[in-house]
Design a protein around this nucleic acid. Structure first.
Lengths: 151, 151
DNA sequence: AAATCGAAGGTCAGTAATGGTCAAACGAAA
DNA sequence: TTTCGTTTGACCATTACTGACCTTCGATTT
C-alpha cells in the first residue's frame, strides 16, 4: 500500500460520503495532510481518477483555487458500460487493456476475480505490444468482456 | 528437492493458510529469504503456478510493487474440461467451434445461454473459414470459454 | 485601467524502487 | 554424452515520488 494508494482510498471514501458524487479539495492542504509534495496529488489524480475509470477532474488556479473530483452518475451505468465496451476499439496495448478492465471493475460490471482471469489470460496469450498483438488483444478482451457482461 | 521445489512448497503452504485463496509476496524479499536471485522467483511462478495448474498471477512493478498469487477453485471434471480446452488448438472452423461448444455443454462446463452468446459473438466477429479467420475464431473461442469456466 | 503581487494549481524531468525477460551456465538424470 | 530442468545475472520496463520551474487568477496598488 503506497502513499498514492492511501490518497486514492481517502478520496474514494470522501466521494462515497458525499451527497452529489463530487468533492472539492485543496491541493496544498491535502498534500500537507499526507506529508507529501503537492505534485503527488496530481500524480494520484492523473493515474487513478481518469475518465476511463469513471471520474472527471475540474480545477481552478489562483487565489481560492480548488480541485473538484466528480464520480460519474451511476444512473448512466449501463450506457457507460456499453460505451466503454465500444471504446476498446480495434487495438489496445496491455496497459490500455488494464485500464479498461479497471474501468469495468469500477462500474461493477465485472468482479475482481474476472478481472484477474481476463488479465492473466491476455498475458498468457498475447505477448508484446506490436500492432498485430494489440489487435489480437483487443479482440480477446472484447470477447471475454462480452460473455461475462451478458451471461 | 531443488530450490524451486522449496519455494513452490513455501508458496503453496502460505496459500493453504490464507483466508481467500490468495497471497501477496515481494519478489525481492522472497528471493532474499531463499538466498537466490529475484528472477528465480519468476522461474518458480512460470513453471509451477500456471493457469493449467489452477493458479493466476497478478503483479505490479515500481515502488510498492508486489506479486499476488490466486488459487483457482478446483473443479470436478477438470481434467476432461482442460483437455477439451487444449484440443481447440490454434485454428477451428465454424462447424468445429460448434462441436466444441456442444462438448463443453455435455460436460456441463458451460450452460445453454453461454453457448448461444459465444456462438453469436463468433458469428458476428468472424466471417468465413479462411485460415486467418479460423485462427481468430480459435483465439476468441478459447478466451470466452476460459472466462466462463473459471470465473 | 494597468501594473504588480501573492496564492493557488500544473508540468516535466529526474531518481528510486520494484518486478520482468532472456540467454547462458550449470548439473543431474537418461 | 546428451538432454532437460534449474539457476544466475545482465539488462529492461513500470510505477512512485520529488522538486524546480511555470501558469493562472483574484486582489491590491499605482
Amino acid at each position: 500500500m503506497t502513499l498514492a494508494d492511501l490518497i486514492e482510498n481517502y478520496i474514494k471514501q470522501r466521494l462515497l460520503n458525499s451527497k452529489d458524487q463530487s468533492i472539492a479539495i485543496s491541493r496544498a492542504q491535502l498534500a500537507e495532510q499526507f506529508r507529501c509534495v503537492p505534485s503527488q496529488i496530481n500524480y494520484v489524480l492523473t493515474t487513478r481518477f481518469t475518465i476511463e475509470r469513471g471520474y472527471i477532474i475540474e480545477s481552478r488556479r489562483g487565489g481560492g483555487g480548488y480541485i473538484r473530483i466528480f464520480r460519474l452518475d451511476p444512473k448512466e451505468r449501463e450506457n457507460l458500460i456499453v460505451q466503454l465496451f465500444h471504446e476498446i476499439g480495434q487495438s489496445v496495448s496491455e496497459a490500455a487493456a488494464d485500464n479498461f478492465l479497471d474501468a469495468f471493475l469500477e462500474l461493477s460490471a465485472i468482479n475482481r476475480k474476472q478481472v484477474q482471469l481476463i488479465r492473466a489470460y491476455l498475458q498468457q496469450e498475447v505477448v508484446g505490444n506490436s500492432e498485430e498483438q494489440d489487435r489480437l488483444r483487443a479482440s480477446l478482451l472484447k470477447a471475454m468482456i462480452f460473455v461475462v457482461l451478458n451471461q
